[in-house]
Design a protein around this nucleic acid. Structure first.
Length: 287
DNA sequence: CGCTTCGGCTT
DNA sequence: AAGCCGAAGCG
């Protein structure tokens, strides 16, 4: 069973006579005809396919040419003129949901505070085997110091990975993207790396980061010779000083190292571009 | 417009 | 299963 209204997108079916490429086309309004025998009341299934109810208005507002997104859609309820930004939002509205405008968010889980909780937590895969093929692949592709961020999805059990270059403060979505970047390939408007946001202190930006997120730092060949970490999980454990806590396999990272990493991590995310420290063997070895 | 998440397709 | 990536959803 596939959800969503597949891509039956009601773009103005090539009936637009002007085939100008350079100018931004004007918004197009499509009024969905009301079926003669349209039922007064419509049952709206909470999940599954859902399409624009009869009589509703769809406005397609094209974006500037070359934009990574072709157009934005706006929907209007016929009687009230109430505007909606998406079909799911309309469905929520018709279902009588109070907060129909925004997607329902997963409840915040209580931050993890203890080792026991950490081990019990499903997504903080500390127990991952360190030397899997995947891990080796990461190490071989990603330059020293790069970070892999794994973001569990709100729904379902999948995750999205991001590859972060802390020095340039860029974020990529796949290894091929990273490789293209490293090769100095041009990137088109699409496929442009994302800039790392400045999440330095305070309010909204921090709030939106409360959820438990697992980070892995990919092995850095400079990270010492005796017992180099293949991977570190950074576990966000609530607000306060000791917020990001690195774990290697099961055990805590020695304090000195931890400090260096934390420093590098935080500065990489928030600091001035020119002040990002590089971890070097000499800094670490003395430990 | 830009970012996050979803979801289909590929590997 | 995991990864890639287009695109929906929405701030």
């Amino acid at each position: 069973m596939t959800t969503c209204s597949d891509s039956d997108n009601a773009y103005a079916a090539n009936s637009s006579p002007s085939t100008n490429e350079t100018t931004t086309p004007a918004p197009i309004q499509i009024i969905k005809p009301r079926a003669a025998d349209a039922r007064r009341m419509q049952i709206v299934p909470a999940a599954g396919p859902f399409e624009l109810p009869d009589g509703w208005i769809l406005e397609v507002r094209p974006r500037a040419p070359g934009s990574s997104v072709k157009a934005d859609k706006y929907y209007y309820e016929p009687e009230t003129g109430r505007q909606f930004r998406s079909l799911p939002s309309i469905r929520r509205y018709l279902n009588g949901e109070e907060e129909y405008k925004t997607m329902p968010r997963q409840k915040h889980r209580r931050p993890i505070r203890t080792m026991d909780e950490l081990e019990a937590a499903p997504q903080t895969n500390i127990k991952d085997k360190v030397s899997s093929n995947a891990q080796n692949k990461l190490s071989s592709i990603l330059p020293d110091g790069w970070i892999v961020k794994k973001v569990p999805r709100k729904l379902g059990c999948r995750s999205d990975r991001y590859f972060i270059d802390p020095v340039n403060r860029l974020k990529f979505r796949s290894l091929p993207e990273v490789q293209r970047f490293l090769k100095g390939e041009e990137y088109s408007r699409k496929r442009k790396p994302m800039k790392l946001i400045d999440c330095s202190v305070h309010q909204e930006s921090l709030d939106s980061r409360k959820e438990n997120t697992s980070f892995e730092i990919v092995k850095d060949s400079n990270f010492g010779t005796s017992n180099p970490p293949e991977k570190v999980n950074w576990v966000f454990s609530g607000l306060g000083e000791d917020t990001w806590r690195p774990f290697i396999q099961e055990s805590m990272v020695p304090d000195r190292l931890k400090e260096l990493w934390a420093e590098s991590f935080v500065l990489g995310m928030t600091g001035r571009r020119d002040s990002v420290p590089r971890l070097t063997k000499t800094e670490i070895d003395p430990a």
